[in-house]
Design a protein around this nucleic acid. Sequence first.
DNA 1: TTGAAATTGATAAACTGTCTCAAAATGATA
DNA 2: TATCATTTTGAGACAGTTTATCAATTTCAA
Lengths: 144, 144
Amino acid sequence: MANKHVKEMQVLKEHLGKHQLKLTRQRELILNAFLRQEHITAEAMYHQLAKSDPHLGLATIYRTLNLFCDAGLAQARHFGSQTKYDNVSHKGHHDHLICTSCDQIVEFENEEIERLQEEVAARNGFTIKTHRLELYGLCSRCRH
Amino acid sequence: MANKHVKEMQVLKEHLGKHQLKLTRQRELILNAFLRQEHITAEAMYHQLAKSDPHLGLATIYRTLNLFCDAGLAQARHFGSQTKYDNVSHKGHHDHLICTSCDQIVEFENEEIERLQEEVAARNGFTIKTHRLELYGLCSRCRH
DNA sequence: TTGAAATTGATAAACTGTCTCAAAATGATA
DNA sequence: TATCATTTTGAGACAGTTTATCAATTTCAA
Ligand SMILES: [Mn+2]
Ligand SMILES: [Mn+2]
Ligand SMILES: [Zn+2]
Ligand SMILES: [Zn+2]
């Protein structure tokens, strides 16, 4: 429990070192809470952390989650109207299936789709930097 | 010029009729301006219409563009941080290539990708209702 | 023509996220 | 370990975008 998330903490420390940033109690706290999640909003992190740390500011949550993005531990994703931070510390690129009824999010990878995207881009003279693919619908549980 | 967009006006009128809504000067005005665009923000429509109609309210623009969405003439799309209304009166489903440098938007359709999406969804027990695929990068002009 | 119902415009409010700044914490250095 | 320049924090102000409110106006079915 105490020395969990060692690898991710190392990644963060390296990023901090490279950018003359400091390791703070808040950053450690937020990192540990964040790594227990897969996809979470800043607001949700705020409420969750408020239980044990009522004075942690919302601005600090935003700043810190954005820092995690810079460090490569997180990725901000806009699902519908919500912005969720995706815990990518242990995953590579992936896209999402989202149940519009229960908000369940399933991750998937499909190299065939990725390849076709490149093909479409090339055909139009584009060089892809990033892309976003989200499939919205009903999961098997919610369909019934 | 006067009787342009007759078909779309008909679609709107049918929607209004079905929902006991009324045809107003503003709705006609906004429809004609909107149909001349492909992808436009509410704010941009507001400024464009302000030239000829300085007292048209921004709220009316939003309300009316959302009405067009209900009528199937428009679709709200969140590109990056902007919300653009896509003029779909004369198009079927399509996805987008977006140049992050000059904001150019290219539309494309790829039935192979669509098919693979269904496959992915089925494999995960999902039934897709909608999806979003956006490829962000540089167009040929901006790459140089 | 009338009048109930819908719509409008102005603006307040909601919502999400960033900025400001004084006070506190960090960590490199002596 | 003490010093102290630099970074970070928390609180709230602020900004951008979209919706809600409401009195006045417009629409349209009767
Ligand atoms: Mn994910
Ligand atoms: Mn389009
Ligand atoms: Zn579900
Ligand atoms: Zn371009």
